[in-house]
Simulated scan of single mutants.
Amino acid sequence: MTLIPELETDVVYPDSDGRPMAESDFQREPLIYAVNALRRWFHAREDIYVSGNILLYYEQGNPRAAVAPDVLVVLGAPSHNRRSYKLWEEPKAPDFVIEITSRATVSEDQGNKRGLYAYLGVSEYWQYDPTGDYLKPALAGFRLIDRNYWPIPVRSDAEGTLVGVSEVLGLMLRLDGNGFHFADAETGQLLLSYDELEEARLEAERALREAEQRIAALEAQSRERE
């Protein structure tokens, strides 16, 4: 009896693993922020792909060989949208991954995923614990050297802000009382969320109105003296 190999066209790679995007608001909000902020930062680059919570398949013909990074960045991959990320159809594995750790994921993030990402060749692997319950400190990074991950220095400044530098992205990862942010490694300029951008816009409009009112008042006083 001759066995006929299963055709690749018969293999189904689901778009979802059926698991929720995040365990709670504590994990969901930084996940959404990170994806949106990085997409805006690289918006002019058609050769950089940014996504989050997307299934990454790493073994052709085996739909069970999959992982869903919270946030991933691939330098050198087209920026178009995808249903899933199949390594054999793409130029390379992600260069950057960050996992938003929770009670349900902390063991996997520090164990199986860390080993898998090293095996796949992910250059930088970061972990962030938004509640501070599972990681000490709450921000940690690792750089792939000779197929093993080595810690990326994360320092605490005089104000208690945790800062690490991603060489892959050219960005700082910052954690302070205002939460988690990316920042330009050269200028220190924060990559703001949509809500923060809107708040800054409204504040600028208020400041402009107040300046216009002060100018109008000064002009009125000047006319009264004449």
Rank of each mutant, 00 (worst) to 15 (best):
101 T>R: 13
102 S>F: 02
171 L>R: 05
187 T>R: 10
41 W>Q: 12
168 V>H: 07
50 V>N: 08
191 L>A: 13
67 V>R: 15
58 Y>G: 14
101 T>F: 05
170 G>L: 13
127 Q>W: 00
70 D>Q: 14
209 R>V: 11
142 F>E: 08
68 A>W: 02
158 A>I: 09
28 R>W: 12
83 R>E: 06
225 R>T: 01
53 N>P: 01
29 E>C: 04
97 V>I: 15
39 R>F: 11
82 R>I: 05
104 A>G: 13
17 D>S: 10
150 W>R: 15
52 G>Q: 05
80 H>T: 02
182 F>D: 01
128 Y>D: 04
143 R>V: 03
220 A>S: 13
61 G>S: 12
155 R>K: 10
22 A>D: 04
184 D>W: 06
169 L>C: 03
208 L>S: 02
108 E>T: 07
171 L>F: 08
211 A>K: 13
100 I>W: 06
144 L>M: 09
24 S>W: 09
67 V>I: 15
23 E>C: 15
175 L>E: 09
205 E>I: 00
126 W>M: 01
193 S>I: 09
224 E>N: 05
192 L>F: 07
162 L>S: 13
66 A>D: 06
141 G>C: 01
190 L>M: 12
73 V>M: 14
125 Y>K: 14
146 D>K: 15
196 E>V: 10
23 E>A: 15
109 D>L: 09
215 I>Y: 04
79 S>A: 07
210 E>I: 06
172 M>K: 10
34 A>T: 10
133 D>I: 02
89 E>C: 02
104 A>Q: 05
34 A>M: 06
6 E>C: 04
88 W>G: 08
144 L>E: 04
194 Y>G: 02
145 I>Q: 15
219 E>I: 06
133 D>Q: 13
144 L>D: 14
61 G>T: 08
187 T>A: 06
209 R>C: 10
89 E>F: 06
30 P>S: 00
83 R>C: 04
4 I>M: 01
199 E>M: 09
76 G>T: 03
185 A>F: 01
201 R>W: 11
47 D>T: 00
64 R>W: 14
60 Q>T: 12
117 Y>G: 12
201 R>T: 09
181 H>R: 15
47 D>M: 01
30 P>W: 10
74 V>L: 05
160 G>N: 08
182 F>W: 06
168 V>P: 02
225 R>D: 08
71 V>G: 02
21 M>F: 14
149 Y>D: 02
225 R>I: 15
184 D>Q: 14
27 Q>F: 13
85 Y>L: 03
182 F>P: 09
138 A>H: 10
149 Y>G: 12
152 I>K: 12
39 R>M: 01
121 G>I: 06
163 V>Q: 05
63 P>K: 11
33 Y>I: 07
170 G>Y: 07
85 Y>D: 00
215 I>R: 14
204 A>V: 01
163 V>E: 09
20 P>F: 05
173 L>D: 12
137 P>W: 07
58 Y>W: 15
1 M>F: 14
146 D>P: 04
162 L>F: 09
11 V>D: 10
111 G>D: 11
117 Y>K: 04
126 W>G: 00
82 R>E: 10
206 R>L: 11
122 V>A: 10
101 T>M: 06
